[in-house]
Amino acid sequence: MALWGGLSIVDGATGPHFSLNSLYLLPLCLTTWCLGRLAGLALGVITVIVTLYLNGLNDGVSAQASSVPMAIVAWNAGMRTFGLAFVIFLVSAFRRTFDRERATAHIDPLTGLGNRRSFKRESERLESSARRDDRILLCGFIDLDDFKAVNDQHGHAAGDDVLRLVAEALVSAVRPYDVTTRLGGDEFAFCLAVRDEAEAERTAGKIHRLLMSAMDASEWRTTCSLGAATGRTVEETLGVADKAMYLAKSSGKSSWVFWTNDRK
């Protein structure tokens, strides 16, 4: 709005013979990009009125109204409105496409969970929030047991069904604002903030229990191993959780291991 106001002042000061019409596209495009199509259209209407008045038509509309036919005034206003509306709709459509592609770039297409890039960004946000609220982080790794056998025996379509099943169970086991991801292959991860280590251990056990129940109820009857840990930073906590997960797999699979800071 400051840019638009400045242009209007300069446009009025330079008189009707020095046109700045094209420069009005910059604040219009910025408004549409940042605030949406309706805000852009509203500013576009104001721009048409102001530019018609400032760029020569003020002579015909005010002091010498009879010298400029109203049909010409209406035609010029219509053409400017059409041109600005076209630009506004074009910028709005590009912004929607941009937002859709940006969102897709952070989503695993098979499961709908966040991917590695999304997990890094969201877990860092969660770390800052937990530090501010004096909470600790609970991070966990999930690895499906003998997943390759499902693909070999039943085909990759069955394997995809298992991955989607695990993703749905994981989302239902955590809160909407907790961070979940498919890291790749048959590996998943989660990160959330909890009050204390007792709550963290209960939550880790609950997640593993719900995952096992969902997989046991499916026709594939697969299992998973889960490693979870608590900590203050995402990087450190994930490293400990990764070690806990490998311990769970080496101890017989279908199990979960939870490590606190003093037990790692």
Rank of each mutant, 00 (worst) to 15 (best):
G60W: 02
L54H: 09
L165M: 02
V73R: 15
D99H: 11
R135H: 15
S67V: 00
R96P: 06
V45C: 07
T97M: 12
D133G: 03
V68P: 13
T104W: 00
E101D: 03
L30V: 12
T32G: 12
L137V: 10
A77M: 01
I46A: 15
R37D: 11
R164L: 05
S129W: 13
S128T: 10
R175K: 08
L38C: 00
A157W: 01
D146M: 07
S129L: 00
G155P: 11
T81F: 13
A42L: 15
L38I: 04
V45P: 05
S129D: 07
V171H: 01
I72P: 04
V166W: 14
I88W: 05
L163R: 00
R96C: 06
F94P: 04
V50Q: 14
G159F: 12
N76V: 10
A93M: 13
T32L: 00
T47Q: 11
W33R: 07
C139R: 07
L170P: 07
R175Q: 00
L54W: 03
G60Q: 05
I142F: 02
V91I: 15
L90N: 12
D161H: 01
R100Y: 01
L170G: 03
R175G: 06
R164M: 08
N55L: 06
R116D: 08
V150T: 10
D160F: 02
E124F: 03
W75E: 13
N115L: 07
I72C: 00
A105K: 08
A74R: 03
D146V: 04
M79F: 01
R125F: 01
R135V: 07
L35E: 14
A130E: 03
